[in-house]
Design a protein around this nucleic acid. Structure first.
Lengths: 142, 142
DNA sequence: GTACAGTACATGCACACGCATCTAATGCAA
DNA sequence: TTGCATTAGATGCGTGTGCATGTACTGTAC
């Protein structure tokens, strides 16, 4: 925003109104941008690889673990989903044979989620699509 | 990103790998940011005013129409939802008495969505919460 | 040891979503 | 006029979501 605009608004309205408008504008852009990228990702990954965005992101997290496994709670942070949704996400991935649940001996309340070979394969397969879609949707930015 | 980093990567890897990493990083930030803001908005608006984020945004669009009404299709763009979800959104708002559906004489396939007085009241009531939450969640940015 | 607060994940439930499809109205062409 | 492709919006259906709660385990206090 230009200093001129601030000045004008400071006379006609209050400066805080300007800040409010800017914030609103920022949120709308963030929101639109997110919807565009997420929507396209979901579509492309689904049609070409039968994966949802969150499925892909969970796999990516697992594949990038040196040990190839992590706690279910760690996935929650990555996918920005609730704990319950993450639990079901793991269940779906397991049903498709992309991950396995493993007992966590050090804390038997928790579980380890482990990528299978098939999981790695599907991830590597989908990765180019994912990156290309980001390229496509993020570079044409406002 | 620094020129130095670009240089190092251009030697060790390929320049396109750097671009890919940046794109990925940008998407993750966008995603995290959106989840944080949207989540907080949803929570605050719901607990204080019984409104969802999309309900609020639809009302905001309607209130800011000079005529106080617009086509259902116009709302679709604002809320970043599918056409069917928008249709149900309007149904929810109507059930709560915040909007009304009106016939569109010029094109009888379409409808007008009209804010009611109660709808305006609820919107104005929720607006400060909405703005305050944006302030709170957008200004602590990365 | 026992009791109890806290944590990790699973699950019942209500609800919102997208996709496909339906209905009704439009508009264009033969 | 009739016919047909197109468009606006509603709706059935399957599925994913969050919330609240349940179950199992941990750790701490006594």
């Amino acid at each position: 925003m230009s200093l001129h605009k601030i000045h004008v608004h400071a006379i006609l309205g209050r400066v805080s109104d300007v800040a409010e408008e800017d914030l609103l504008q920022e949120w709308r852009e963030l929101s639109a941008r997110h919807a565009a990228v997420f929507g396209r990702l979901e579509c492309r990954l689904q049609e070409r690889h039968g994966l949802g965005v969150t499925e892909f992101e969970a796999l990516e997290r697992l594949v990038n673990c040196v040990v190839g496994k992590c706690r279910a709670a760690d996935l929650t942070d990555v996918v920005h989903l609730s704990q319950s949704a993450t639990s079901r996400l793991v269940a779906r991935l397991e049903r498709e044979g992309l991950v396995q649940r493993a007992l966590c001996e050090s804390d038997r309340r928790g579980i380890f989620v482990v990528v299978t070979d098939e999981g790695r394969r599907r991830y590597e397969e989908a990765k180019p699509t994912h990156r290309a879609t980001l390229e496509e949707t993020l570079t044409v930015k406002a």
